[in-house]
């Protein structure tokens, strides 16, 4: 769905999720482990109780784990599920969902997932990479072929081996081919966007730009809604053209408790609180009730975190994070 006519796409998270995310959709999140997860959008998916989602990500953390824990997810394609040092053995809900057999899942490596989004972004059916022919990521399939064949959002093959057609040596050169990903929806949190949907990321872009281009529909939440002329004064710093974006949702602290470079750091206290709560089903339900189902929007969620806690996270502009922040989570 592409809109070339310039118009305001600004809406609330409630409106954007209701209009663009449907039960059973293949969705992807931007960000990486504890940075720039689209938490405001993720919370809204949980509030609206979307079901049977198929989630494809590379190294996703908080948003991914929470969505799995809330029971919204039926299929996972993933390279790494966790919040790094805040959940050393992996995201608690991700782990439990697999250990208890509650989701269909498939493992890839980060480079493979990245190339899958890039293939989708470029409009080609697959991309090749060198190496890693013999590992279990290639040999073992989490989702059996008969289920793959019945699911239109999955290719029949998880992964394939291809020969280099240009090889001039006697010996065959075999590469790993990974299938393109074309998500129904990409959910992205950016530092700045304008009402038409032009996006400017600050800090690392991870795979967000490829995820946006690969997806059929795109919801961008942003820290700051800015005037188009502001972004157009320096276009080389913008990464997403407006016509790829369907909804622009201004959500200050929209990545909390993960970080947003240049705006705020990750919240060690809250990440730890979540990781502890998510270890058991009962305490997870309590967490969901308090922070998500008990709040109407991200503003109410942030009120529970409190201004004092949020102020501590504010980034020092010269470095992009909060220097000296107590990160022990105590």
């Amino acid at each position: 769905m592409i809109t070339l006519k310039k118009q305001s796409k600004v809406m609330s998270a409630r409106e954007a999720i209701a209009e663009f995310v449907h039960d059973g959709d293949l969705i992807t999140f931007g960000g990486f482990t504890i940075t720039r997860n689209p938490m405001g959008l993720c919370h809204e998916i949980i509030r609206q109780n979307k079901k049977n989602l198929h989630v494809a990500v590379h190294s996703q953390g908080q948003a991914f784990d929470l969505l799995v824990g809330a029971g919204c997810v039926a299929v996972l394609e993933v390279a790494y599920g966790g919040t790094a040092r805040f959940s050393p053995g992996g995201g608690p809900c991700f782990r439990r969902a697999i250990e208890k057999g509650r989701v269909l899942f498939e493992d890839y490596t980060n480079f493979q997932m990245t190339l899958r989004f890039l293939a989708g972004a470029m409009g080609v059916p697959f991309l090749p990479l060198r190496g890693s022919l013999e590992i279990d990521v290639v040999k073992k399939w989490g989702i059996p072929p008969e289920i793959r064949r019945r699911n239109p959002k999955l290719t029949n093959e998880k992964i394939a081996l291809v020969e280099n057609p240009f090889s001039e040596s006697e010996e065959k050169e075999t590469l790993v081919a990974v299938p393109a990903l074309r998500p129904d929806v990409a959910l992205i949190h950016a530092q700045q966007a304008d009402p038409e949907g032009t996006v400017r990321f600050g800090g690392l872009t991870f795979t967000d730009v490829e995820q946006v281009k690969a997806a059929e529909r795109v919801i961008v939440s942003c820290e700051e809604l800015v005037d188009p002329e502001t972004l157009r004064k320096d276009p080389v710093r913008n990464q997403v053209p407006f016509f790829l974006v369907n909804a622009v949702v201004p959500i200050p602290f929209g990545a909390h408790p993960t970080a947003c470079y240049g705006y705020y750091d990750y919240d060690p206290v809250h990440l730890k609180r979540y990781a502890e709560a998510a270890r058991e089903e009962a305490s997870l339900r309590e967490y969901l009730k308090t922070y998500i189902h008990g709040t109407r929007d991200h503003g109410e969620y942030l009120a529970l975190i409190g201004d004092q806690a949020l102020d501590k996270l504010r980034a020092e502009p010269s470095v992009g994070y909060a220097p000296g922040l107590d990160r022990s989570g105590r």
Binding site: G31, F32, T33, I34, T35, H58, S59, G61, T83, A84, R85, F86, N110, F111, T114, L115, L118, L129, R130, G131, G203, L204, T205, F206, T207, D208, V209, E210, A259, Y261, D265, Y266, A315, V319, G320, Y321, R327
Partner: peptide, 26 residues
């Protein structure tokens, strides 16, 4: 505390994304 921590980018030579870094690595 993660390879995605904002601290990895401050003062770096280049800040880009996964496509670039894995391409360089490969």
């Amino acid at each position: 505390l993660s390879v995605g921590d904002p601290r990895v980018v401050t003062g770096a030579s280049v800040g880009t994304g996964l496509v670039d870094s894995f391409a360089i690595l490969q």
